[in-house]
Design a protein around this nucleic acid. Structure first.
Length: 487
RNA sequence: GGUCCCAUCGUCUAGUGGCCCAGGACGCUGGCCUCUCACGCCGGAAACACGGGUUCGAAACCCGUUGGGACCA
């Protein structure tokens, strides 16, 4: 007890840092690969530095935010085992804070009410464009003293800074011309905050020290920086991570096929494999390709994150998944694959227990031959289904009249052997091979076909041992009947 | 169109001025292993976008060009 107590205190004392990061998705669709990677990098950074990882749902866009999307984010993060320390916080429940902050800026003369109608704004914007000027708000209401009583927005009085430097942990310094920014809206006429405003208010309130986000937000950063300044808050460190692109080099989106994290679960990917894959997209640690969760946490840091966009490569993900499947404990895989043996064709529960094959043992034989859980389930199926179907190729090439004597010979010997182990089976094969003057391959293929309905399978002895003597005999009899029935 | 970002094999990347006529991985490919198919093992093809500088020396630093991307409009 004493030792445990000491260990814990020491641990906290020595290693907990003040680093605070957040993942702040907008709930407007499924959790996609890019979002998942942003979440993962924040998570790994927090865990590596013993900091705090916060989940914040940016749901102030009332048209596009949905409850389903919020759930999708939770589901995706849970499946990937990306867990957070604080939150989830919902921006929609923090409207008072945004309003208060805006009021404060108003009182300090750093913001003002703007009564310009959308129609006027659009007109003036078009005029500016026609004159070849940048279409920015002209600051008309800055000095306004009357109050027309019509709807208004609150605008931030953009400070006159010629140059804004964004110091980025990944890209170094990025310089922006401050004169290009205008007096942007912070509170809409319906009282809702705009994106950039809510982000800054929350990042200050949550004491975020490192803003790790997609580089599609780079252009938002100068505005946010001026707001941090106006609010007298210290600047967080920024780290803009590159986007994930599709094969056409454009930002990954629906048209690139499966981009939802959950789609990969449904396709039979292991969450560990997907995490490993997206971690290696834009980040590396020497030549290592496969990382355990702990290695990811130990090795991850921002200085090893690259600055160029990465193209999503499904082939490599598939290979990684195969690696994870091959190296997973068979007992564990057997549990996971059950999800893919759909009830409608899942025979595992109605095969009598005494003849039911041992699922982990079947998985053991198949896991080096399967790249996804879906493939594994398909491969396993004939072993569980006593009435499995024969592939057309097997029917035409193996279950022929010519092969009946061979199958019959195997059947006779199997029925009369007391031993059912590899040496005894090898003995039978040897004898049969001699008698028919056939090589092992010529012996195995017809038998494989009879036993599994397929022309590929694990080693023939393994198949026989897996099925057991009774089921093997039953299957050979069935195959002989079918072969005999063919002309 | 404006602003900003990016640039090593097809793809993910190693590389922080000499260890690089560039290393690893996926994919492709030749072979070995072998009862089929995988796994595994051995080998191969395949890249520093281009042009200028800086330097004794540049994949690496600077400038430009080209190409790609993101955001805003």
């Amino acid at each position: 007890m004493t030792i445990a107590f000491l260990t814990i205190t020491e641990d906290i004392h020595l290693t907990v840092s003040d680093f605070r990061v957040r993942f702040a998705p907008s709930p407007t669709g499924h959790l996609h690969l890019g979002g998942a990677r942003t979440a993962l990098f924040n998570f790994l950074f927090a865990r590596h530095h013993k900091g705090t990882f916060i989940l914040r749902i940016e749901d102030t866009d009332r048209e596009r935010s949905t409850q389903d999307s919020i759930q999708a984010i939770f589901d995706g993060l849970e499946w990937l085992s990306i867990d957070w320390d604080e939150g989830p916080f919902f921006q929609s429940k923090r409207l008072g804070m945004y309003q208060n902050t805006a009021d404060r800026l108003l009182a300090e003369g750093k913001a003002y009410r703007c009564f310009c109608s959308p129609e006027d704004l659009e007109l003036r914007r078009q005029e500016a464009v026609a004159k070849g000027q940048p279409p920015k708000y002209d600051g008309r209401c800055r000095t306004r003293t009357d109050n027309p009583g019509s709807p208004f927005v609150i605008r931030f009085k953009n400070p006159d800074t010629p140059e804004i430097v964004v110091s980025d942990l990944i890209r170094g310094n990025m310089r922006f011309n401050g004169n290009l920014l205008d007096d942007w809206v912070i509170i809409r006429s319906d009282g809702f905050p705009t994106y950039n405003f809510a982000v800054v208010v929350d990042d200050i309130d949550m004491k975020i020290t490192h803003v790790i986000r997609g580089d599609d937000h780079i252009n938002n950063t100068p505005r946010q920086i001026t707001l941090f300044d106006a609010l007298g808050a210290p600047l967080p460190r920024f780290a803009h991570i590159p986007m994930i692109h599709g094969a056409d080099r454009a930002k990954l989106s629906k048209r690139h096929g499966a981009t939802s994290v959950m789609a990969y679960r449904d396709m039979g990917y292991l969450p560990e494999a997907l995490v490993n894959y997206i971690a290696r997209l834009g980040w590396s640690h020497k030549d290592q390709e496969i990382f355990s969760r702990q290695e990811l946490i130990d090795y991850f840091d921002l200085d090893k994150v690259g600055s160029s966009p990465a193209i999503f490569n499904p082939e490599k993900l598939l290979w990684l998944n195969a690696q994870y499947i091959r190296n997973a404990p068979s007992q564990d895989l057997a549990e996971r694959v059950k999800f893919f043996l759909k009830p409608v064709n899942n025979p595992i529960d109605y095969i009598p227990p005494d003849t039911r094959p041992d699922l982990p043992r079947i998985v053991e034989e198949w896991k080096s031959r399967s790249r996804t859980l879906l493939e594994l389930a398909d491969a396993i199926h004939p072993f569980l289904d006593q009435e499995f179907t024969f592939s057309p190729e097997v029917l035409s090439k193996q279950l022929t009249q010519d092969n009946i004597p061979l199958l019959q010979a195997f059947l006779d010997q199997f029925e009369h052997t007391a031993e059912w182990n590899k040496p005894s089976l090898e003995h039978i094969f040897h004898q049969t091979g001699t008698r028919f003057e056939l090589k092992l391959s010529q012996l195995a293929q017809p038998l494989r076909a009879a036993l599994t309905g397929q022309h590929i399978s694990p080693g023939i002895y393994d198949v026989l041992l897996l099925l057991g003597s009774r089921e093997s005999i039953r299957r050979i009899k069935r195959a002989i009947l079918i072969a005999g029935g063919q002309t």
